Amino acid sequence: MESLAKIALGGGCYWCTEAIFLSLRGVRNVDQGFVSSVGEQSDWSEAVVIRYHPGEISLKDLIEVHLHTHKSTAAHRMRNKYRSAVYTIDAGDDEKVRLVLKELQDGFSEKLITEILPFVDFKPSEERYWNYYYSQPEKPFCETYIAPKLRLLLNRFSNLVDPKMVQASL
């Protein structure tokens, strides 16, 4: 049995974020919904919880994909609900994430605003929204917002993508 690691990421709408990470090799499961962090239990943010195999995809790769597939350098007008964040779950991940963000900052012309927050709780979204993009890619939201992110993913991170997932849907 493979040992899976877990991380939670917030980067705008969870429909978009879910589609991105379902498309990557090494990712075994993506749950979309709402995450709370220490001090913000009443302030839930859209996010995904990702279970992945570290032997197939690294934490750094996941974070790099995350930073490039949402507005990680610009605040959203609904900042708390759609915050750019890495929610750390496993002990020791805070420092790993901090180092990764510092290293990846050089790839951006503006300062990253992505927060590192401790994961406290998760509420899944309604089941009808699960696998939103891959179950209905013809929807206007999917064509307008998600498909361009998947094209970017395929062009920039083709070595990490499961081509069966992305190419079949674009």
Rank of each mutant, 00 (worst) to 15 (best):
L99P: 07
D93C: 06
G92D: 14
N131S: 11
R98C: 07
R98K: 11
F141H: 03
I113S: 02
Y132G: 04
S125N: 09
T88V: 13
Y132H: 12
E127S: 09
V97T: 03
F108E: 13
K111M: 10
T144K: 14
F141I: 05
E110N: 13
S135Q: 12
S109V: 07
D90R: 12
E110L: 03
E143T: 10
V120S: 06
D93L: 00
S135C: 06
E103D: 14
Y129W: 13
K139Y: 08
P140A: 11
K96G: 09
E115A: 15
S135F: 07
P118A: 11
Y133H: 08
E95I: 07
V100Y: 00
D106M: 07
D94K: 00
V120R: 11
K102E: 15
Q105N: 12
I89A: 01
L112H: 08
V100S: 01
R98M: 08
Y133E: 02
F141M: 06
V120M: 09
E115W: 13
K102S: 15
S109C: 10
V100L: 02
E138H: 07
F141D: 01
A91T: 14
E95N: 09
G107Q: 13
F141Y: 09
K96I: 00
Q136V: 04
F141R: 02
D121H: 06
K96C: 10
L112S: 05
P137G: 03
E127I: 07
S125A: 15
K139R: 14
K96M: 11
I113K: 04
P140Y: 01
K96F: 03
L104S: 03
L101H: 06
